[in-house]
Every structure is written in C-alpha cells, then in structure tokens.
Amino acid sequence: MVVGNHDLVSNGNDSYREMFGDYNFSFVYGRYKFVFMNTNSREDAFNGKVPDIGWFEKEISPSEDFEKAVVVFHTPPFDNDFDSELEEPFVDILTRFDNVLFATHGHLHGFNFSYPYGEEIPFVNTPSPKKKQFVIIKIFNHEFTVDLIGF
C-alpha cells in the first residue's frame, strides 16, 4: 500500500505512519524489486523533498538483488499535485537504468494505460473503488498483463 494525498492532510502524516509505517519502502520478490513512494508533493507545500529523489535513485540503481523494478506511487508526475520541479529528475531516474517494468499510480480515479514519457515506461492508472473496478497485474518473464475487473 502506498500513501495518497488526502492521507496526509492535518495530522494524517502521524496517523498514517503509526498505522502503516514508512511512506517510502521497497522489497524484492523473485527477480523483481517493488518500490513504493510518497509523491504527494502538494501536501508538503512543494518543499522539494517529496518525492525523495535521492532515495528513489538509490533504490532503483541496478544491483545483484533484482533485475526489474516496479514503481508504485499515488500522484503521477504529470499531475499538478506533483512538484513540477521534480518531474524531470523523477522521470529521468525512472528511465535511466532501463530496468523499470512499469509504474502504477492512482489519484486520477479512472483506469488508464499509457506511455506518458515514451515507450520504455508504461503507466497503469488503477481505478478508484468508487468506479467499482480494480486491476490485477500479473508479472512473469519480464513481462506483465493488466486485467481490469468490474464488481
């Protein structure tokens, strides 16, 4: 699970950390590294620290632990709740090592599959449960499928 912008209003930052732990975290499963991060720049008044570019670069830098990475965040870099000054460095890291399988995010509420920054990085916008939809993403052999499920 990854933190969303409305989780952080008022004293939500403390409550969130108490309940769910760090905003930025990662784990490796098989040959894949899953990187979760806070990209809700507006809630921190665009202070230049969200998203944490240094942390992201370290996490995504190639290592023996993983071959491909999946990056999960709430606010996509092209949204105006994302710090526009950090959009370029963020996307640069996403594409620099040619090891990101896809990025997935929410915030825009409707399902979407697109290539906003070129063919290397597909973006999956997962729908809001209010749309009575969710997605199942299956990863295998450095490829993946996206199924949109209605309920």
Partner: peptide
Amino acid sequence: SEYFIALPDYYPEDYYWWAP
C-alpha cells in the same frame, strides 16, 4: 499549524471544502 482554518496558499481554491 496543521489544523488550518483558512486553506494554505499551496492549495488551489476549494481543494478541501472542510477545515481541520
């Protein structure tokens, strides 16, 4: 300070309709 009444200026107008 985190329990704002007037919406801080880093939000667009009506970003939150309620005030914490």
